[in-house]
Design a protein around this nucleic acid. Structure first.
Lengths: 257, 257
DNA sequence: CGCCTGGTTGAGAATCATCAACATCTGTGG
DNA sequence: CCACAGATGTTGATGATTCTCAACCAGGCG
């Protein structure tokens, strides 16, 4: 128990000193998102003891890379990451953005190698959760096992959502949907749902949604002109939530308004 | 142990009589795909005892429906299923095709309700695996737990593959990739990799790949004219595997040849 | 200050969707 | 067994959304 801190007191000391390191699962304000609700205090301690908290990732640094041997999943503590894979012809395809409280790296379990790379879009702190240990712990704590099944299932559901987006929706619908999604995830983290800074570039947005930078830029322009958004570079204010949500569902796009 | 057959001898008797029902995990020829390799014989018996085998699904019948309470995942024994969700504006979006040996329904775990519907494309036999019991069993059999994590992770990886397809690739690339995928999955099941019958309609293919029926039809035509395929309605023969694989990766599409 | 990255805007081109007509297949009932 | 109807698939002509290419603008950093 508490092996990590027992064995590496120096590292723990470092944790106590840098304010960003000292968080444990017990006092992490993201616990409600990242952790199962049903865990007992003692269980949380056990989970806490296997979680490794390294130094923050600088923008562009990788949490892991495609084809790396898989050993852990990661929880975002602060900042934002993007996951992407490189296609056979060398292009990058972003498969997801990960905000605080969200878990990434679960695509690596099946082949024991990461199926994607993950890099920080801005300075980010992450918790590394060794998967071997997590498996052991899950076998002992049913609610933890269930929670992990749920997390993976959620990832599947998210991906299917995106598949639907890409298969059926116009550029406007996709972008509106992304903004709605970011807004919702912000409010889950007790941040503003209507006013936030996009951590990713236009190129990233386009890549993720299967659009070009130019199209992204134009759609932002149209949304702004239509009074749905105020856009100042990466600063976004949603002015008309309902209409944005409608646009995401293809009801009354901006073009026809 | 063997609760199912102990408690419901009548049902078991029915299983013994109809040849399609009598399979157990022990003698199922798909075990190598569906089951973890590492399971001991006694473990397989335990898993076998929780698996329910119902009557076959007729074409169009549902294994489960979106929003149904989630209680089980399903393994395909024979036939093919498609999973789809209905968008807010009432359109259908297919999220996957499932061939024998593959597992579906894992997207329902997170919300305890199915996130998609699954229906048979042709007469199909499926194994129902109650998830609650599977969780208990997984906690006791580490390799089973690991296998299930792997299965879910594989689903994530598949979905991300499709996302990449939809985001970046042309109609030709998408269709070539689907054919390559079906071919590969066929050969994994010891069936012909070059000659097979598509279980799904053109409309399903188009829906899945984000294309219209007409485009699907035209691409099949072009592939045929270019000598990559022989297409006779749903019967497909791959004549030039390498070129088809290249087309899937965008190398030397048919249009420019 | 000037370079470089990231973002915006414009004009033309291309892929794919839409609309429409037609062909083929399936299965149902006479 | 054939005929017919509905579903499924093919083919053609036209058009729209989005991509491509290109120029230009803004901000950050050496």
């Amino acid at each position: 128990m508490l092996k990590f801190s027992d064995q590496v007191p120096a590292a723990e000391h470092e944790q106590r000193c840098r304010h960003d390191y000292q968080i444990s699962c017990n006092n992490c304000r993201l616990a409600s998102i990242c952790l199962p609700i049903a865990l007992e205090a003692s269980d949380i301690d056990q989970l806490d003891s296997i979680v490794q908290r390294g130094r923050p990732l600088q923008k562009g640094e990788h949490a892991y890379r495609e084809h790396d041997v898989f050993s852990a999943v990661y929880a975002v503590r602060s900042g934002t990451l993007k996951a992407y894979r490189v296609t056979d012809d060398g292009q990058e395809q972003i498969t997801g953005f990960y905000f605080p409280g969200e878990i990434l790296g679960m695509d690596g379990i099946s082949k024991n190698r990461h199926a994607s790379s993950a890099t920080a879009l801005e300075t980010a702190a992450i918790c590394e959760i060794p998967f071997e240990r997590l498996g052991e712990l899950s076998a002992r704590i049913p609610s933890l096992q269930r929670h992990f099944f749920q997390l993976m299932s959620q990832e599947i559901a998210y991906d299917q959502q995106l598949i639907t987006q890409l298969g059926k929706n116009s550029a406007e619908q996709r972008i509106a949907a992304l903004l709605v999604s970011i807004s919702a995830r912000n409010s889950e983290r007790k941040l503003s749902a209507t006013s936030f800074r996009l951590p990713m570039s236009r190129a990233d947005i386009g890549n993720y949604l299967g659009l070009t930078v130019e199209t992204v830029s134009r759609v932002f322009g149209r949304f702004q002109k239509a009074g749905l958004l105020a856009v100042d570079n990466k600063e976004i204010s949603i002015l008309d939530v309902d209409q944005l949500r409608n646009a995401a569902n293809g009801i009354g796009g901006v073009t026809k308004a």
